[in-house]
Design a protein around this nucleic acid. Structure first.
Length: 456
RNA sequence: GCGGAAUUGGUGAAGUGGUUAACACGCCGGAUUGUGGCUCCGGUAUGCGUGAGUUCGAUCCUCACAUUUCGCCCCA
């Protein structure tokens, strides 16, 4: 037997429905924010990621899927979404569009050659946004607000927003040097990894887990102290807009991020979920004002975030958040004889064409087993075909909850189902299941709350 | 790249160096001549992750590999 590759996932069943639901919620949210869908290739020239993400980052040095294609080209499976989108932005000259900034969102699989563990696969799915062509702090706040609002819509509570600013290039370089000067005399007090990090990426020493209790780290220079006036002011403005959006956040001066292209605002959304280990970051992102330029495009100010779908679903599971996923059936059609089966075929087609969720028997089961199958599929109504009834143009329909049976004229069937199923829908809604906290105000946020306003 | 744990049917799992691999759920069939979900009866792994080795003999011992899982690094 051939098994799947390490760290990959076969997605099916209710788990697949959850993933689809999460994607759907995100896509509908993106309509509200007026972001446009973009899909770029899953593989790109290796050079794009090397130059884009940073030659020395771990993602590029040890985690990419690299290979040669039949034309001897160096190809890499994308480890993240931003570089490909920036490439596309430049190649398609989107900087020339009348509409600026360019607001994009994506949703797709990414690849990193890592050791799989909780919340981390080799093939994983991320969605996110990129805004290209604006340095307005309002955009920073908006981009941070998207994952916050999104997680709220899903009903995930207790998420924490952490923000920091790395400042512009001048600030960042000054800070980097200050860190090196500060740590260098004491470097042998730190762990082996930190020794490596000193020259390569001294910012990362700050969130080292081994040395996290070392006084050296606690007293280390803070990013914010090294921001020049302009960067400092910019960061203050971002925070003001966040306040306007009523987003709670925590400034974390140790928050740095692993990809080289970030500057100014960086942020992470953390889940406070038990049993998540160190992979509790659900979304992260930041500003990257020099990346377009670095990849041979015009100077363009950009910001974006990315969010791991698998981690979101995992967090929802751990928090036992109930999602409004359709896992039942409205009608199950039952038959025994061949003539009944033919009738079932056309009846089912008719009901489906009229918008009902309908299924039937396909494996030659007897009537008794068909009842069991209908239960397994959570059918609300059973239509039990009978040649004698059909001769009179009638069908027997049974409410599978109350077990009441009625003989209904075929002409009347659609109307009958419409009436009975809409009554049930109201019964099924359980406001206690709703985790969004908005139901008193009848918000349309979580899929549980808008039952009174179905009509568009 | 480094370290720990695991791998028995559709599922949850017990188990032993030696005839037929417990038990439970599920599923299929029957009692019930077309209305079940209770009950009762019967059926349901030529097989114990893959490959090699030790042995008269291995699911059980040894090694390698694969996958899963947990941690480090790093990241979403």
């Amino acid at each position: 037997m051939i098994s799947k590759q390490k760290g990959c996932l076969d997605l099916y069943g209710t788990n697949a429905k959850k993933w689809q639901y999460v994607s759907k919620v995100f896509e509908s949210l993106m309509e509200k924010y007026n972001y446009n869908y973009i899909r770029t290739p899953i593989f790109e020239a290796s050079e794009l990621f090397h130059r884009g993400i940073g030659e020395t980052t771990d993602v590029v040095t040890k985690e990419t899927y690299d290979f040669k294609d039949r034309g001897d080209r160096d190809i890499t499976l994308r480890p993240e979404g931003t570089a490909g989108i920036v490439r596309s932005y430049i190649e398609n000259k989107m900087y020339g569009d009348a509409n600026q900034p360019v607001k994009l969102f994506y949703n797709g699989t990414m690849y990193r050659y890592e050791r799989p563990q909780a919340g981390r696969d080799r093939e994983f799915t991320q969605f996110g946004v990129e805004v290209l062509g604006s340095n307005d702090p309002l955009i920073d706040a908006e981009v941070i607000s998207i994952p916050v609002m999104f997680l709220q819509m899903l009903g995930l509570r207790g998420v924490k927003v952490k923000i920091n600013s790395l400042g512009d290039k001048e600030s960042r370089d000054n800070y980097r040097q200050a860190l090196i000067d500060y740590f260098k005399p004491h470097i042998n007090e730190l762990c082996e990894d930190c020794n490596d990090r000193l020259l390569k990426n001294p910012l990362r020493i700050l969130d080292c887990k081994v040395d996290k209790d070392n006084a050296l780290l606690k007293n280390a220079p803070k990013t914010l102290d090294y921001l020049n006036e302009e960067s400092k002011k910019r960061f203050e403005t971002v925070k003001e807009y966040l306040d306007e959006l009523e987003i709670e956040y925590e400034v974390d001066s140790r928050l740095v991020r692993g990809l080289d292209y970030y500057n100014h605002t960086v942020f992470e959304i953390e889940a406070s979920v038990e049993g998540f280990g160190s992979n509790n970051v659900l979304a992260g992102g930041g500003r990257y004002n020099s990346l377009v330029n670095q990849l041979d495009g015009p100077q363009t100010d950009c910001i974006g975030f990315a969010c791991g779908v698998g981690r979101i679903v995992q967090a929802l599971d751990l928090e036992e958040v109930k999602l409004p996923i359709i896992d039942d059936l409205e009608v199950f059609v039952m038959y025994v004889s061949d003539t009944e089966k033919k009738y079932a075929t056309s009846l089912m087609h008719y009901l489906r064409a009229n918008g009902f969720r309908v299924d039937t028997e396909y494996t030659g089961r007897g009537l008794k087993a068909q009842f069991k199958q209908a239960d397994r599929l959570k059918a609300k109504y059973l239509i039990i075909l009978n040649d004698e009834d059909l001769a009179k143009d009638e069908v027997k329909i049974k409410n599978n909850k109350t077990k009441e049976e009625e003989l209904v004229s075929v002409d009347y069937l659609l109307y009958y189902l419409d009436e009975h199923l809409s009554d049930e829908d109201l019964d099924d809604l359980d406001i206690d299941d709703c985790k969004c906290g908005h139901h008193e105000e009848n918000h349309k946020c979580c899929g549980h709350c808008h039952h009174e306003e179905e009509e568009e």
